[in-house]
Design a protein around this nucleic acid. Structure first.
Lengths: 115, 115
DNA sequence: CGCATATTCAACCAACCGGTTGACGATCAA
DNA sequence: TTGATCGTCAACCGGTTGGTTGAATATGCG
């Protein structure tokens, strides 16, 4: 499903680039969920959510286990941690300007309650 | 240049999803660079690199300043830190299984020397 | 069995992405 | 001025993405 030659970080970051998928991950923090229940709050078809879940599974950000007729989705934080480790390499090189950083967080992050 | 309604994290993660762009960021850790010098190690046209740099600038991962005829590219780690902060929210919820995590790092990360 | 529920598959679509090439505008230097 | 260098722009291309619909496949239930 994913091009075999792509770096694991490619698929992880690409998966995280979509707000629907980030919202799904946030929901899965609460608890494991069935596909239908994941789809419920979103204004899009079940098939679309099914595809999003496949993208997340390809990136190993979730796993899916079928029990009976329902497929349970479970958060799998290891891949996310690997990406986080990669990213932290960048923050550490200059002495952290906490003022600038908090200004950034204040102006950039809260403009959307969704996540 | 970027769709106005997209969340900042969308563009940051999308920018990070490409290995060429991650490599550029890594190069910029060393020092600020001119566009031509950024392009040098890559087997693709200058125009392609110029586009990649525009994507990174849209995501506020770098800034570009033109001095004379050369345009200098500078790493801007705040956006990266914001994404890192978002991600760390996930790692903290289950008691960290360090064994599993190290196994993950060992199998998933080193298969590509590039980054 | 017969029906409802859970999920995916297949085909299709418009939009976007990552790359190319060639022309172009700016800037420096002889 | 002439010419070289720096970088972007515009048009194009094939492949991917994110969504839609409708049919198909399991599975559970009365």
């Amino acid at each position: 499903m994913t091009s075999p030659s792509s770096h694991p970080l490619d698929t992880v970051f690409a998966a995280l680039a979509d707000p629907t998928r980030r919202a799904i991950l946030t929901m899965l923090l609460e608890d494991d969920m069935a596909v239908t229940d994941v789809a419920h709050p979103f204004a899009m078809s079940l098939a679309a959510i099914s595809k999003h879940l496949q993208v997340l599974a390809d990136a190993r950000l979730i796993t899916q286990e079928k029990r009976g007729r329902v497929k349970w989705c479970k958060l799998e934080p290891d891949a996310l941690r690997a990406a986080s480790v990669w990213m932290q390499g960048f923050g550490q090189f200059d002495p952290v300007d906490l003022d600038a950083f908090e200004r950034f967080l204040a102006t950039e992050l809260p403009d959307d309650p969704e996540i």
